[in-house]
Design a protein around this nucleic acid. Structure first.
Length: 667
DNA sequence: GAGTTTGAAACT
DNA sequence: CAGTTTCAAACTC
């Protein structure tokens, strides 16, 4: 009734004129993009709208167009999206779809007298106006991170939707090109990150995530806000399509702020869509699922894209620091006996560290940075991966997660895994058994002999080879040159503790390439080492970064003390322990010669290191969400007073004297 | 991706 | 404690 004829007719008529114009034909001939007939408006946004929660406004028109369009464009996206789209397409034929349309139309609060055609167009426009702020603003982002064009597009689009004052084709093309770039970025990103997360694992973890709302990352929450607001606004202001546009615009400041936040850590938001969409698939319902979808989508983004740190054996200790915003909730979750699922994301964050540094400056190819990137690129393939246990149920030291005192999480592809919070008792009991067999089973395997160690060690202490595997390797065939060798894998040299044969460890041979060496030998070894452990250095730097000096999410994820196999590869973390430093310093001070010093340090570690890393302290930290920094797990100032008296006791005595498993204490 | 190699962990 | 088996990661093709 009140619906302006302009809304109904003008677009089509204008479009027809436009299409028929010579200018249009000329542009069309130039464009590699095949124009999709005269459904200009819909086409214009369809490629964008598919990112939006389709179930929210399942207009038959849009659904239909999406389906057809995806057949062409879908290849830019992941399968789940496809399935979702297809599903969406099927749904359009169902009564459910019809009811959704009715519901939506009801939300629009249009005059009941509005014609169907009008309703469709209004519906469509409303969808566009609603979807655009959610998708365009992200997806139209220019490579240099400038969002202005996107906002411009958005504004213009809104104007266009209302008044059809702008050529829809031009808008379409602009956005299409931008999206093309965005997709290309995504593909590049995926190549770099080597993300091949199985859908099964993703799905299972989505389940866990959704059942654990308290672990939503702060960015997710930030993102959630405007979405909620938007949705609420839709309901509140639904009467007028343009009102939706206005609402969208009004939401821009918030969205822009989010962009500001995300732009620093989310190079490409699209990456998460697969997961998010999969989630959407699982939960078919409308608004809630979409809310969650958005939340999860962005959360996943945070996981995967935050500039950060990778999680793999050799860099695990550093990852945590990229998760500062989550640490508190994480700890509190731990305090409740949960395993913060947020950490899962963090686990994978590193994999996306590359995009931030990758593809950027070609001029740096010969720089150490390039080497680091190269190394990281190799590591990326495992950055998203954790254990892959099949028979051990992740309850043996074979399992890296278990050995590190971590629950298995999403990146794990383990089978019959018991290393989960739900089986906490089993985990703890198993761990206790293992520790009863070998009290040092979960102790760090690699000890860095640095920080204040006597100057006689010189620069050695600053090298990867300045750390040593506590028990040493036992390599026979790998010559300690492959990751089979724990020493090599940890980036440390072999020591006299090793029983390896034919040691050629580039980080330092047990025959003394390093420990006995003076300058030349050492340089040769370290040159080797620096190449292979460039990440190690980077990690150290990262740890020193003030912004990264935050509680370790992985630490907080520990069901027990922060020790174990993965911890064994965290010499830096251990190094950072004031207590360890002091005790090691003491230990080293008792020795005079170089080689014996190394040995003494190593030998002293069980006493000074593991046993005196009071696990109850660690637990105390975990139990105390207010602890600012998990490093304090190893920082036991009050313990130092006793360390001097206990550290030279026999290993077993000390071990018995230290509660290895505080969590065993009855609740 | 499947198969092989390797060495740590677990077992006897 | 030594030998063997089991295991999962690393590696190769």
């Amino acid at each position: 009734m009140d619906t302006p004829d302009k809304t109904q007719i003008t677009p089509t008529s204008n479009l027809c004129k436009f299409e028929d114009s010579p200018v249009f034909k000329y542009i069309d001939s130039l464009s590699p993009i095949e124009l999709a007939k005269s459904r200009q408006t819909d086409n214009g946004f369809s490629s964008l709208a598919f990112l939006s929660p389709s179930s929210l406004f399942p207009s038959p028109q849009i659904t239909c167009h999406r389906e057809s369009r995806f057949s062409v464009k879908r290849h830019h996206f992941l399968e789940p999206l496809n399935s979702r789209v297809a599903r969406s397409g099927h749904e359009s034929n169902t009564s459910e779809e019809a009811s959704k349309v009715d519901e939506h139309l009801g939300c629009l609060n249009n005059d009941s007298s509005s014609k169907e055609t009008s309703s469709d167009q209004v519906d469509e426009q409303t969808n566009l106006a609603t979807d655009l702020p959610r998708t365009l603003k992200y997806d139209c982002r220019s490579p240099d991170g400038d969002f202005e064009p996107c906002d411009e597009i958005l504004k213009k689009t809104n104007v266009e939707v209302a008044g059809q004052e702008r050529s829809p084709f031009q808008c379409n093309r602009d956005k299409w090109e931008e999206r093309q770039q965005s997709f290309q970025n995504e593909r590049n990103l995926r190549k770099i990150c080597g993300i091949k997360r199985s859908e099964e694992s993703a799905g299972s973890d989505w389940d866990r995530r959704t059942t654990n709302p308290g672990t939503t990352s702060f960015i997710s929450n930030i993102l959630q806000f405007p979405l909620d607001k938007a949705n609420n606004s839709e309901n509140a202001e639904s009467g007028d399509p343009s009102g939706s546009c206005k609402q969208s615009e009004s939401g821009e400041p918030v969205m822009d702020q989010m962009h500001g936040i995300l732009s620093t850590c989310l190079p490409d938001e699209l990456v998460v869509n697969d997961s998010g969409l999969k989630k959407d698939d699982k939960e078919g319902n409308c608004n809630q699922s979409n809310h969650q979808q958005f939340s999860i989508r962005r959360r996943c983004l945070v996981f995967e894209k935050s500039p950060g740190f990778g999680l793999h054996l050799n860099s695990l200790p550093n990852i945590p620091k990229g998760q500062s915003p989550l640490s508190k909730s994480t700890l509190s979750s731990m305090n409740r006996g949960e395993v913060p699922d947020d950490n899962k994301g963090v686990v994978t964050e590193n994999s996306y560290e590359m995009p931030a540094t990758f593809g950027g400056n070609e001029a740096d190819h010969n720089s150490p940075e390039k080497k680091r990137q190269k190394f990281e690129l190799v590591e990326e393939s495992v950055a998203c991966k954790r254990c892959n246990c099949k028979r051990s149920k992740c309850l043996k030291l074979y399992c890296d997660c278990f050995a590190a005192g971590l629950y298995c999480i999403e990146p794990c592809s383990c089978q019959d895994c018991f290393n989960k919070p739900i089986h906490e008792n089993v985990v703890l009991e198993t761990r206790r058994q293992i520790e009863s067999r070998n009290p040092l089973a979960f102790a760090p395997k690699v000890i860095r002999t640095t920080n204040g160690v006597s100057d006689s060690m010189g620069d050695i202490n600053k090298t990867p080879a300045s750390a040593r595997h506590k028990r040493g390797c036992n390599c026979k065939r790998s010559s300690c040159l492959k990751k089979y060798c724990e020493c090599f894998q940890a980036g440390v040299g072999c020591s006299l503790s090793c029983r390896c044969e034919g040691c050629k460890n580039s980080f330092g041979r047990k025959d003394g390439c390093e420990s006995e060496s003076d300058g030349d030998n050492l340089e040769a070894c370290e040159k080797n080492a620096s190449e292979k452990s460039s990440h190690d250095t980077v990690i150290s730097k990262g740890q020193e970064h003030p912004n990264l000096s935050v509680p370790s999410p992985d630490i907080s994820r520990l069901p027990f003390a922060y020790t174990g196999k993965l911890a064994a590869f965290f010499p830096h973390s251990i190094k950072s322990s004031p207590q360890l430093c002091s005790t090691q310093e003491q230990g080293s001070s008792d020795t005079s010669s170089c080689k014996p010093k190394l040995e003494s340090n190593l030998d002293g570690i069980p006493e000074n290191g593991t046993p005196e890393i009071p696990k109850h302290k660690c637990f105390t930290l975990v139990s105390n969400p207010t602890s600012p920094n998990c490093k304090r797990v190893f920082s036991t100032p009050n313990h130092d007073s006793t360390s001097s008296s206990t550290k030279w006791r026999s290993r077993k005595l000390i071990l018995r004297s230290v509660p290895s498993f505080p969590s065993f204490s009855p609740p």
